[in-house]
């Protein structure tokens, strides 16, 4: 994972260097610190487990920006890993990719899957800002609103089938609204996601006799404590298609912008019961480089 991160960072530096050579009217960066949020686990700009309406990358409407991230969550009985990136075009359109791995570690033995059995999926995302402005329009309560979609393709389809999942791929649709309330030093964000995904898709999509879309909620509240430091909390509801108990997710996090390029997010997460293992609490750490 460390090597992957190094490769990603290297690729990012290259992107940055290319950007610097662009026409002087095409501005590679220019957003204010932390106003692009951080990377969510689906690879899009968000708060961590919740998707926001902001567009990833430090570009303004006059340029193209990008970010890469690597995230690890160590739970009581499992480990979650994700890495990926997003490209923002003119602060209007964002294309993203994330690879997620859910490592059953020693728990795999107890589940009869084998030690270190790992579920993984690829998540491809597109997000478009449709109205409002999260940062500049401080004379209005109207948030920035974006719509987006994630196409997710999970591996291990035989096991997912055995667990009762209907499909190993699916599409999530969402609407997200985000606003920085500067006079309160507060960021509020909410999203509604139409999804069939079990544990965001890592355990497949739909279940036996249940192949409907469910409207689920993702919310974040963050307090800006300094130009480079924010603390907050998130909540994400989930469908329950498999007949295994699937709980909502809750986090409390701290995000720190080391400089204009690098930021780090640390969180305590409560992912509830996963695959019959209760109380999956743990530590979340995410590194992000934005350009």
């Amino acid at each position: 994972m460390q090597r992957r991160l190094a490769v990603l960072l290297g690729a990012g530096m290259l992107l940055c260097a290319t950007g610097a050579k662009a026409d002087s009217d095409l501005r590679p960066s220019g957003k204010l610190l932390l106003t692009e949020g951080v990377s969510d686990i689906e690879g899009s700009a968000g708060g961590g487990v919740a998707t926001w309406a902001v567009i990833g990358g430090y570009e303004t409407r006059d340029g193209i920006g990008a970010n890469v991230h690597a995230t690890g969550i160590q739970l009581k009985d499992f480990q979650f890993r994700s890495w990926g990136g997003a490209v923002g075009f003119y602060d209007r359109v964002e294309l993203s990719y994330a690879h997620q791995e859910f490592d059953t570690q020693g728990t795999g033995l107890k589940l009869g899957l084998g030690r270190g059995f790992t579920f993984s999926q690829d998540v491809y995302g597109a997000k478009v800002k449709v109205l409002g402005d999260a940062v500049y329009a401080q004379d209005s309560w109207v948030p920035q609103v974006s719509v987006g979609a994630n196409y997710k393709k999970a591996d291990q389809s035989a096991v997912l089938n055995f667990l009762g999942a209907r499909d190993d791929s699916g599409v999530d649709w969402y609407v997200a609204a985000t606003k920085v309330y500067l006079d309160q030093s507060l960021v509020l964000s909410g999203a509604v996601r139409a999804t069939k995904a079990n544990q965001t898709g890592l355990l497949g999509f739909g279940g036996s006799g249940n192949d409907n879309y469910h409207a689920e909620f993702e919310g974040s509240a963050a307090l800006l404590l300094s130009k480079r430091f924010a603390v907050g909390a998130e909540y994400r509801t989930k469908p329950n298609n498999l007949g295994l108990k699937e709980d909502d997710w809750a986090t409390v996090f701290a995000a720190f912008a080391i400089n204009k390029t690098l930021s780090v997010t640390a969180a305590y997460v409560d992912l509830g019961e996963i695959a019959t293992f209760k109380h999956q609490n743990g530590a979340y750490l995410s590194l992000q480089a934005g350009f």
Partner: peptide, 22 residues
């Protein structure tokens, strides 16, 4: 920052200036 103005008061002021972007 150099004038040691509190961060929240800085943001209150910036909230007045931000719409001037338009």
């Amino acid at each position: 920052d150099h004038e040691k103005i509190g961060f929240r008061d800085q943001n209150r002021f910036l909230a007045k200036l931000a719409p001037m972007q338009r």
